[in-house]
Nucleic acid binder design. Structure first.
Lengths: 157, 157
DNA sequence: CACAACAATTGCAAGCATACATTTATGGCG
DNA sequence: CGCCATAAATGTATGCTTGCAATTGTTGTG
């Protein structure tokens, strides 16, 4: 009989290896984008994609940078055409940041490419194997619990 | 009967979700390090960890930066104590870069933390579930093929 | 040995992120 | 209405990365 620790260790190692494979997929999907925008800039775009338009304060809080840092970062990506500043009539001292269609495209495209890459990898497997992977991945994701967006933003996901 | 495309789509989605969970783990393990060294600097350390001591030229080629960029980057992480410059007696125009014990620790610690985080997640599962995950992850990693270090370096893995 | 090829570094310059302090505009409250 | 709090932007400064061009030191070759 196999001792529990050994079994657990093998499980963790397998997950680590799979994580390398998955990260490779992610890295490739991000690589293209990083030739267009910087990682901190991409983080902003991803956050706006998942959360919709946000105030400067909220946005800065979410990605963990000071207001002054964010203000200048927004300057640059507004200049580049990925986002837009909107002053809300209700409270004219608050500034809403929202994705432009171009910015939306940029994020959507990166996510779609990642999904396609994964589909490519799975395409060589038999239906049985695929279904085993689906169950296992769903199981793992559930065990991991809600992955906080904050963590993922570090990598610009 | 379920059409193939639907099934494939669900598989890719499950993999995507699992990838978010795994990347959360990776992100957390990287987050701590990024308060100590920058991402490009961490890339250098990770590469030296997996490849051993490297010449400036090879190192620059591997992480895709110009020699001048690398030279100054090395200046800084030498100054910080993570790596060491070694002039090889055999060819005095070549400079070998190698991790110091401190640099080695930094990388090792980040990887260990990632592995521990994964083990934590798996700890709530039953042996059967764990074994299903192990098989599925091993299967996926094999299907993904060799993940090039070059890709992974983008994210500093 | 002289000269070309190579390895690494340095000079010079730009862009980006970041931080702290200050300023401007606006909103809320007594 | 006047004052204070709030939201964002600016002034100022530092450090990292990146790029192109020029330089220094070293190796190998004719």
């Amino acid at each position: 009989m196999i001792p529990d620790e050994d079994f657990d260790a093998r499980a963790a190692d397998a997950a680590l290896t799979a994580s390398r494979a998955l990260m490779g997929v992610v890295a490739r999907s991000v690589a293209g984008v990083l030739e267009i925008v910087t990682l901190p800039q991409f983080r902003v775009l991803v956050l706006l994609d998942t959360s919709g338009p946000l105030r400067m304060g909220v946005l800065g809080e979410a990605i963990g940078v000071l207001p002054s840092t964010l203000s200048r970062a927004i300057d640059r990506i507004v200049e580049a055409g990925w986002v837009r500043r909107t002053t809300r009539p209700a409270s004219r001292r608050e500034v809403l940041i929202e994705l432009t269609p171009a910015g939306q495209n940029l994020v959507t495209h990166a996510l779609e490419q990642r999904r396609d890459n994964i589909a490519d990898i799975l395409s060589v497997l038999s239906p049985d194997q695929k279904s085993a992977i689906v169950s296992a991945f769903e199981l793992f994701a559930r065990a991991a619990g809600e992955t906080s967006s904050k963590d993922l933003l570090i990598l610009g996901i």
